[in-house]
Design a protein around this nucleic acid. Sequence first.
DNA 1: ATTTCGAACCGGTCCGTCTCGGTTCGTTTT
DNA 2: AAAACGAACCGAGACGGACCGGTTCGAAAT
Lengths: 191, 191
Amino acid sequence: MGPVIRPGRKRSEESRQAILSAAADLVGEVGYAGLSIEGIAARSGTGKQTIYRWWPSKADVLLEALAAKADLHIPIPDEGSYPADLRAFLAASFALGRKPQVIEVLRALMAEAQINPAFGERFRTGFLERRREALGVLVERARTRGDLPPDPRPGTVADLVFGLIWYRVLATREPIDDALIDELVSLLAAG
Amino acid sequence: MGPVIRPGRKRSEESRQAILSAAADLVGEVGYAGLSIEGIAARSGTGKQTIYRWWPSKADVLLEALAAKADLHIPIPDEGSYPADLRAFLAASFALGRKPQVIEVLRALMAEAQINPAFGERFRTGFLERRREALGVLVERARTRGDLPPDPRPGTVADLVFGLIWYRVLATREPIDDALIDELVSLLAAG
DNA sequence: ATTTCGAACCGGTCCGTCTCGGTTCGTTTT
DNA sequence: AAAACGAACCGAGACGGACCGGTTCGAAAT
């Protein structure tokens, strides 16, 4: 008793790719504020309706473009010790953030998440919380191995890590580099 | 050789107050996205030009409204010990954040700071860095007293504190309450 | 047959600038 | 002292431009 599905024209993968790469290019040229659906449509050679049909907002287009462009796989490394695991996790997570354009997009998406509640929910559950949980798994494993003292509250380590990273990105604008990895590892894996 | 002072009508303090309180009221009713210069002008009974003459953007109006409404004095308490000082600093800093409307405005301003570069510079230097420096003074005093081990990098403590706070506000949306104060104090004043 | 596609076209909102007549000052002249 | 003057302000609103979100169209693909 499945629904009667009448076949129709399939979604154009070509248009999808064109839209995503046009969005990624444009945001690097004109910034997030200067980015518009109309601009994406014009650059990609598609129509506005094609974009509105598949994405709720320009922020969602950018989020998918970010996920498509770079590999957003979240690693949970097992190097044998907590400091090594943490270092490997951070190094893999920062691979993206080396490019200023990616940081620019991340800042814009975090900003949009504050202004647009619906996108905020998608951004939190689909992006932020995934990373938080991945780091949580890593920490929990170290804890059962006895590499780490018990947590005052579940998720404290992850909140400290991502808090410091996002504060750098959003507020102080210091670069995301190897020195930050060293600092985080020494702060959280020493005591 | 002082500046040549041209006579003219003085700035209306009445209009300034009306604009600030109208902005504060409106942002609580329609949210930051729904807030507009035209709306502020209409609600305050002033003209758009009067607003554009004195503030570069609606975010600047809100920032001044926030500073005017609540006392934004940044305390540097001296309770005799580092944990007590830190606790007093956090308690005073969080006094504002108890109201959800204030949090809403802070989130919007941080978002705007990411999108509007000129306002971002003002927000960082005039708001964020002031708090960072205040906490830095407090930490440095504790360090010279020997209450705290030397810092791997200047400002590490402040970055951890404000990173965790802002990450809560922007990402996890957990409340800013006394439990957070306890957590921060035990995390940073114990080791 | 059904759905997607590119394209064109609205109605509406807000921005940022500008203009207008009128008001409040400090300065200058009488 | 009193009046005239000019500068910067005031509220109100018109204006062009940009963009949004949605609709409709014929053509194309399956």
